[in-house]
Write a protein that binds this DNA or RNA. Structure first.
Lengths: 113, 113
DNA sequence: TGACATACTACGACAGGCGGAGTATATTAT
DNA sequence: ATAATATACTCCGCCTGTCGTAGTATGTCA
């Protein structure tokens, strides 16, 4: 089985997270499941990778956190949600452009099929 | 200008080098120029990145080194050439498969256009 | 009652990339 | 003749993102 190595995906974990936050604010566990689902289980982000990405991106101003209840009645444990900022949206768009370039570059070294 | 960040290309420097060595044995400076040319200057590998890749890949058994003269008359300074091994060829093929998967995964998080 | 899901935090190791500096020879321009 | 530039490397150490391991605490379901 071919698996995606961390060195390969390294530059795109943040982008994937931001992509999900473009739709709606979300939190760790949910984002983790979103990534798994959207890739049909082909990629599962590690917990530590995910949470350290939150810290880094909040520091960089790409996301903002807020604590909220899981439901309006205030039941359940509070969660830390993240919301994408304008800077985050810009960063995401840049990464999409960069991806186009990267794909072009890398494929010049791949066997055709 | 969009530039390829090292975190993105990280998983593919070795693959690019091996791709060039699939054609013929080569050495540092020439490989560096090959990468630059093949990508139309879109990607230029750093010297230290290149030479440390040689060390790593030789240790891993993906390449073998030999010292030779630049020309048959024995003029000029000797160079360290690298030749891809069978293990290196296999590794390269695996990376090509991994690329297909990575591309699929990453693009599920990219804006369409 | 106990397993499993949810929702995190902390710590430290590891690996690849890279900046900076240095060495040495060869070729080309002035 | 000399200076600049290209070639062909090596060494050292920092930085960053990933990830293994471990721990905490609540919620839910059988």
């Amino acid at each position: 089985m071919v698996e995606i190595s961390s060195d390969v995906i390294r530059g795109y974990n943040d982008t994937m997270i931001l992509s999900i936050l473009m739709e709606a604010p979300s939190y760790g566990y949910e984002i983790s499941k979103s990534i798994r689902n959207r890739t049909d289980g082909k990629y599962v982000i590690k917990e530590t990778t995910l949470y350290s990405a939150f810290t880094r991106m909040e520091k960089n101003g790409y996301i903002e956190s807020f604590v909220a209840d899981p439901d309006p009645e205030g039941n359940g444990k509070k969660r830390t949600y993240y919301r994408i900022t304008e800077a985050g949206r810009n960063y995401y768009r840049e990464k999409c452009e960069e991806w186009t370039l990267t794909k072009d570059v890398v494929e010049r070294f791949m066997v055709e099929r």
